[in-house]
Amino acid sequence: MPHWVDACAAEDIETEDLIRYDHPDGRTFAIYRSPEDEFHCTDGLCTHEFVHLADGLVQGCLIECPMHNGVFDYRTGKAKRAPAYEDLKTYQTKVENGRVLIEI
């Protein structure tokens, strides 16, 4: 059953950047702050290979995998460039009292 999880403080993420959030159940997520100051969340690992997206580069609404240049639109999870073909799973986010919550 999806539920809201307190992942980080909003100020932990710079604009046009992301951080990694590891849930105690073992899952890992990437939380993004867009240039428009919106927060987004996707699975933390590239769908191509086992690489944490949190080490990658955010450019606008895109996240580039730090290993092989696979690119995703982090708002939709859509894979935009090979070698990434499989879309990322996305999660709802909200900000309450300066904290970023993700629904997982």
Binding site: H48, E49, M67, H68, A82, P83
Partner: peptide, 10 residues
């Protein structure tokens, strides 16, 4: 070669 190089880096 794009894919072979991807493997080379992995």
């Amino acid at each position: 070669w794009r894919w072979s190089h991807s493997r080379h880096h992995t």
